[in-house]
Amino acid sequence: MEAYRPPTERTRFAVAGARANVAAVLGSQPRGDVIRNNVFAGLLGLAVLIALAGLAALLAQAVVEGAPALGTNLITEPPSTIDTANAGFRPALIGSLMMIAFVIVLIVPLGVGAAIYLEEYADNTRWWNRLIELNIQNLAAVPSIIYGILGLGFIVRGPLDLGFILLAGAITLALLVLPVVIIASREAIRAVPPSIREGSLALGATRWQTTRRQVLPAAIPGVATGVILAVSRAIGETAPLLLVGATVFVTFDPTPLGANGYSALPVQIFQYATRPQEEFQTMAAAGIVLMLVVLLAMNSGAIWLRNRYEQKW
């Protein structure tokens, strides 16, 4: 199986030579085609530019506005209403990191497990399997506040009755992003060439051995991408957390089961942005920068892991 590889110097040279030969024999390309080619390339470039410009503008605004508050106190100090100059996001940051850790622990086995079942075991000619599939896709598009209501009714109160604790927030976020992981993992598993499976099965491996030793290792980069997307979404969610008890003013480090409450970065940023005093709005901007740094650090780590396990056939 020959996978696509980026062109090397050698192939580039060969392509250029072939194009020159064709042009020499048949004459250069019609003018219209050349223009269309350039216009298309220009449009693609513009699309990239707009996406990047949006990100750059957001970053620049947050950095400029938050500049006066940027400093180590952001991660070492608790929030403060009296002494805003030395206030920070410590409890919220720890709350967010802990929640993300729990989210990952929950979504990786559940999401990958569900994906393996749907791709490798489920018979998708059966209507119930197709129904499950359809529902997972729909769940990925459900607004996050709905998951917040679910979390409040079933996890914080109701059947699980965990109370307003950090773990309840983490479970709610995990449910919210689980469909993304399942869908991405399924795509990754589906992209593993059937010849790999067939070869493994032909050599006498069981279906589980094939999945475990051949399919899963090959699917890891795709799964990792899904987890990265899911975690990035989870860390920025505010609405469901407000419902399941994340508060704004917490001056101590939260614990997973501590009944005294917890906070999360986006919740505190959101609250600070709506305060009248300018110091709080500066703090909110600094909080955005902090959250971006956390997000980038996490994603870089995940991408490093992904590249390390990248497959080549």
Partner: peptide
């Protein structure tokens, strides 16, 4: 992947 951050947090 799961624990890298878990530890840190």
């Amino acid at each position: 992947i799961a624990l890298a951050l878990g530890m840190a947090a």
